[in-house]
């Protein structure tokens, strides 16, 4: 994780953040993970444990559960997920530009306007294709 963050900060920051800055992040992560895991695995020991066949079934509005929940779901959600990956990568490309906005001056601005054009072309294409229509 540390190496990854340093790698990222080399590209994103004007001044490179040193590894030392990430030590508190690791302490915080250790505290948070420790607290969560301890609570999730130890607290169940405190309560009572009573089982019965009906109680162990899934809850479906009080009726007998039908089958199980390992079934395929609407393809729309996968389309949204894939579009998210595409556009999120494009959004991330704006960040290094925004940080170096002053240094790049007018050349950078024109380059980004062209990139916004690409972004919009793709965006209008998916809208026209109806990839985001839910009730068809």
């Amino acid at each position: 994780m540390l190496i990854y963050f340093n790698f990222a900060s080399q590209f994103l920051g004007k001044d490179m953040s040193s590894t030392v800055d990430y030590i508190p992040v690791i302490i915080q992560a250790a505290v948070a993970v420790g607290f969560s895991l301890a609570t999730v695995f130890l607290v169940p020991k405190l309560g009572p444990k009573l089982h019965s066949r009906k109680k162990d079934m899934n809850f479906e509005c009080g009726l007998e559960p039908e089958g199980n929940a390992r079934f395929p779901i609407s393809i729309r959600y996968f389309v949204v997920a894939i579009l998210f990956v595409l556009f999120d990568v494009e959004v991330i490309f704006f960040y290094p530009y925004a940080v170096n906005f002053n240094a790049l001056q007018l050349n950078g601005l024109f380059a980004v306007l062209i990139f916004v054009g690409f972004f919009l072309t793709g965006f209008i294409y998916i809208l026209k294709k109806g990839a985001l229509e839910w009730d068809k």
Binding site: V31, A32, V43, P44, M57, N58
Partner: peptide, 30 residues
Amino acid sequence: LFFKEDFVPANADKFLFMIAPGIAMTVSLL
């Protein structure tokens, strides 16, 4: 909440069922 019975449905994936709330909590504390 601490002293309630901790219930896991019979046909749930036990391990993932246990760690999911832990992930949600850890991430929000970070």
